[in-house]
């Protein structure tokens, strides 16, 4: 994400940011859905089922978990961001500790795009 001099001045003056970036973000979101033909209900159902599967293995923050479609260069990706709860000593909380896992990155998915 690029930040221009205008953006900074707008921020200082507490003005609304220029509308082109809003347009770009809204378009990217709506196109990801258009291209996938997935309705919001289906996406929500998929989100819940994915969370259920992951929750079988590790304790995740169900409220924070998000599954979304992101798109770039006509490639659409399903991005799941599932924060895993940690134990007091920083380890991942396993549901039914079978064998101890090594310290792992927190996120289930590599794409680190924040909107």
């Amino acid at each position: 994400m690029e930040i221009t001099l205008r953006d900074i001045i707008n921020k200082l003056l507490r003005r609304q940011p220029a509308s082109a970036s809003t347009a770009r973000e809204r378009l990217q979101l709506v196109l990801a859905h258009d291209r996938s033909d997935l309705s919001t209900e289906l996406l929500d159902q998929m989100r819940r089922e994915i969370l259920e599967v992951v929750a079988k293995y590790v304790e995740i923050d169900v409220e924070e978990g998000a599954v979304s479609l992101e798109t770039e260069d006509r490639m659409t990706a399903l991005v799941a961001n599932l924060p895993i709860k940690r134990t007091m000593n920083g380890q991942i909380k396993l549901k039914e500790p079978k064998n101890k896992l090594e310290e792992n990155p927190q996120e289930a998915e590599g794409t680190d795009q924040n909107s």
Partner: peptide, 18 residues
């Protein structure tokens, strides 16, 4: 309008539509 960033830029559109 493009210069004022109040209109999608050329790159915005070509990137989005690829």
């Amino acid at each position: 309008m493009m210069a004022n960033q109040e209109m999608l830029s050329i790159n915005d559109v070509t990137d989005i539509l690829a």
